Simulated scan of single mutants.
Amino acid sequence: MSTETLNWTAICGVDEILPDTGVCARVDGRHVAVFRVGTEAFHAIDNIDPKSGASVLSRGLVGNLGEQIVVASPLYKNHFDLKTGACLEFPEHSVQAHRVRIEAGRVLVALGA
């Protein structure tokens, strides 16, 4: 899918997300967690923890397991790959990943990967 045909939503300014943390936003009625990894990389996945149904993934701890950059759910500690949304412990609990881009100092998200 071309990035020009996607519906991009401005979430916040780049500097409003501290390195190695996340924020939650509603994009077209969907809860999305947007993460800043280090100072340059941004990722977005669904914010709803599939096991609990709570909108909490943006509050999880960002880190890595080997080569994978992940967030650990604050409730059940399951790890979600920030690039793909895959749940490492329980693949059936995977979430959707979304596109992120930076434009004029703003973080924009488009649903779908």
Results as ranks from 00 to 15, higher is better:
Met1Asp: 15
Ser2Tyr: 12
Thr3Asp: 15
Thr3Ala: 10
Glu4Phe: 13
Asn7Ser: 15
Trp8Arg: 07
Ala10Ile: 14
Ile11Gln: 00
Gly13Val: 00
Val14Cys: 09
Leu18Arg: 11
Pro19Phe: 07
Thr21Ile: 08
Ala25Glu: 13
Arg26Gln: 15
Asp28Met: 03
Gly29Glu: 06
Gly29Asp: 05
His31Asp: 15
His31Ala: 14
Ala33Gly: 05
Phe35Gln: 00
Arg36Ile: 07
Arg36Val: 02
Gly38Pro: 06
Thr39Leu: 08
Thr39Pro: 00
Thr39Trp: 07
Glu40Asn: 13
Ala41Phe: 07
Phe42Glu: 03
Asn47Pro: 05
Asn47Thr: 00
Asn47Glu: 05
Ile48Trp: 00
Asp49Met: 01
Ser55Phe: 05
Val56Tyr: 00
Arg59Met: 13
Leu61His: 14
Leu61Trp: 13
Leu61Tyr: 12
Val62Phe: 04
Gly63Tyr: 11
Gly63Lys: 13
Gly63Met: 13
Gly63His: 09
Asn64Tyr: 11
Asn64Leu: 10
Gln68Pro: 00
Gln68Asp: 12
Ile69Cys: 08
Val70Trp: 00
Val71Phe: 04
Val71Trp: 03
Val71Arg: 01
Ala72Gly: 03
Ser73Ala: 09
Pro74Asp: 01
Pro74Ala: 06
Tyr76Thr: 06
Lys77Leu: 11
Asn78Met: 06
Phe80Arg: 08
Asp81Met: 03
Lys83His: 10
Thr84Val: 06
Thr84Lys: 09
Gly85Cys: 05
Ala86Trp: 04
Ala86Gly: 05
Ala86His: 11
Cys87Val: 07
Cys87Lys: 03
Glu89Ser: 08
Phe90Gly: 01
Pro91Leu: 05
Pro91Asn: 10
Pro91Lys: 11
Gln96Asn: 14
Val100Ile: 05
Ala104Cys: 08
Arg106Ala: 02
Val107Pro: 06
Val107Leu: 10
Leu108Cys: 06
Gly112Thr: 02
Ala113Asp: 14
